[in-house]
């Protein structure tokens, strides 16, 4: 279903959900939950957004049913740990590549995805200061290295 323009801020989280559909359904579920919560705040009144969000809610309900034997879905505290670990794993991979001077698309994507998953952590409550800093650093690094590679410059 096409994403209405008002809901554009959640497009990357929805893409991450799609990419993890088979690889890690727990990541996929919480990315959609974040998108749902955020989408409702952005616009749940106009018909196109309502239609989109109702569809997203249908998807979430059916995922929850399918994953009913998974503790990371049935207990949000376990889900919180799962998403945080996954986000940190991506961050550490990208950070290691960065420190080793290996700059490539995959590490840029890992930095960016870890920052998106730190957004997702906000469904469980206020982010820790450490996660806020990680998110800021990861998003800045992804943008900076992306721009360097695009302009044929070496990241410092």
């Amino acid at each position: 279903m096409a994403l209405p323009a008002q809901l554009r801020p959640i497009q990357h989280h929805l893409r991450t959900a799609q990419e993890h559909e088979n690889r890690d359904p727990v990541v996929s579920y919480y990315c959609r939950l974040y998108a749902m919560q955020t989408g409702m705040k952005l616009d749940s009144k106009t018909p196109e957004c309502r239609k989109f969000l109702v569809n997203l809610m249908d998807q979430l309900e059916s995922m929850k049913k399918e994953l009913s034997d998974n503790e990371s879905i049935t207990q949000e505290v376990v889900g919180n740990a799962h998403i945080e670990n996954y986000a940190l794993k991506l961050f550490l991979y990208a950070d290691n590549e960065d420190r080793a001077g290996r700059f490539h698309k995959n590490m840029i994507k890992s930095f960016y995805s870890s920052s998106l998953l730190m957004d997702v952590l906000s469904v469980f409550g206020e982010l820790s200061e450490e996660n806020v800093q990680h998110r800021k650093y990861a998003r800045w690094k992804a943008t900076y290295i992306h721009n360097c590679l695009k302009n044929g410059e070496s990241p410092q």
Binding site: M40, R50, L53
Partner: peptide
């Protein structure tokens, strides 16, 4: 007609909020 449309919109919004709470086991 516009007030009917607005009532329908707000009922649908409530429905979404309730479904979200149920999904998260908050009801």
């Amino acid at each position: 007609t516009s007030s009917l449309a607005s009532s329908v919109a707000s009922a649908e919004q409530d429905d979404l909020s309730q479904r979200l709470s149920r999904l998260r086991g908050q009801v």
